[in-house]
Design a protein around this nucleic acid. Structure first.
Lengths: 239, 239
DNA sequence: TCCAGAAAAAATTTCGAATATAATCGTAAA
DNA sequence: TTTACGATTATATTCGAAATTTTTTCTGGA
């Protein structure tokens, strides 16, 4: 339970700007934490990380510091780094805030969004729908679905013209996704939220702010309830 | 204009948990950025930082990474770290979000806050009032006022029972304060917001949520207008 | 005079070793 | 048996040097 089954291998060159190993380590660690390959509370020992990810101490330390500032890991004095703990209270707190932030951002997008925003939303919605309809429900590539789903939610708020709103929404989405992916690890609950996504899209493009925000709230609330029950019922049958 | 007049000296032992130089460097750099001793856009060259702050490369890199995640500095590929840029758009974005986040947090505090919260608010209000009334207006210690002012705003939202709300509010307060302190550098505009603070305190303790939130909105708006005019009129008479 | 390209310099990034701190184990005393 | 103390081990942290990349400077040609 302490080491990831198969840690995400570093692929240098992923970051267009940088090429730095610190950025690669950041991406790999973030992916493994979000994908719950690294369980909450896990002690992140440098010697092990170095071996698992094939990166030196300096880049690792830098990546962990960035993740700590984002709340995905926490660091304690001179005792090292740990994967952020998970709790129902924490999840509820994050969810409440996500509803507010993303709702506010969506409202602003509907008010300010231009043609490019609309095109962005339609494209993202389409990319997600293709995935959900195309493959049989059991065969959906989880990582790809996560990517497309994130892109869809990002597109909704991308018209808000508020970099800070988007930054905070992304931070909260990371936290939220960690819980969702942890909850949907044992029981593969089909992501049957396709209809909701379509309704939100339609309302947003129709510039019906109140309706769209309300639907988004419901969309998140439904996910919260589903995830919360999984968390309280420890159905974990894994090793 | 490129190097701080007198960089904040590291004092090891400031952090109770850690004692690490990375944490000390983080505090010192944050203080100098918020205090606008380091101007927006400044290139943070390691050789200079090493000399100015008396810290090695590893702790500096770690501190800068944490600051980058918080948005106080930004890092570019393999070209180093820079103090975050400042613009009117950015300031307006931050201010809008701060109004929303802090308003939401205050509302939750009023709804959920217990006796300890009320005591906390009264104490923080008193500490700030002492400072504003005690010394003559020109003689107020800026750093101390900043501390007390932050403590007051933190106390208001400390009853919200939402760690994430407080964390994000703090992040936004950092960004906001950077602009305020930059604006009030040349023209020492007396912080005559004492009355507003009292009104907000009274409304909060009376559990008048709508009124308190409205007053908080106004309080921020007044500061925004004052700061924005200073930013658009480049009155800079400094070197 | 201006542009292109190579050489030199400066800076960031990374690695490996040294240091300091915390955790562990074993031993002895109560 | 439990507790307290000291030695040992393991780990995080930090420093200094090497390697890589970027930036600047210099030279030659159009």
């Amino acid at each position: 339970m302490r080491n990831p089954e198969s840690p995400t291998r570093i692929r240098v060159g992923a970051h267009e700007g940088g090429h730095t190993q610190a950025a690669a380590a950041f991406d790999a660690l973030r992916a493994d934490i979000l994908g719950s390959k690294l369980a909450p509370g896990t002690s992140l020992v440098f010697s092990k990380l170095k071996a698992d990810y094939g990166v030196g101490l300096s880049p690792l330390r830098e990546a962990l510091s960035r993740l700590a500032a984002g709340g995905l890991v926490y660091s304690e004095g001179q005792r090292g780094f740990f994967v952020a703990n998970a709790s129902l209270d924490d999840f509820n707190d994050i969810s409440m805030l996500r509803q507010n932030i993303e709702g506010l951002a969506l409202r602003k997008s509907i008010e300010l969004g231009d043609d490019a925003w609309e095109a962005n939303v339609v494209a993202a919605r389409h990319g997600l729908a293709l995935l959900e309809r195309g493959s049989s429900k059991a065969e959906i590539n989880d990582d790809l679905w996560e990517l497309r789903h994130r892109e869809f939610h990002d597109s909704l708020i991308s018209g808000s013209n508020s970099p800070w709103l988007m930054h905070i929404a992304d931070m909260l989405a990371d936290q939220f996704d960690r819980y969702r992916r942890r909850a949907s690890k044992g029981s593969l609950s089909a992501q049957s939220s396709s209809d909701q996504h379509q309704e939100i899209t339609d309302a947003a493009l129709d510039r019906k702010a109140d309706l769209a925000v309300s639907l988004l709230h419901d969309h998140i609330k439904i996910a919260v309830d589903r995830i919360a029950t999984t968390l309280t019922d420890p159905d974990e049958t894994s090793s």
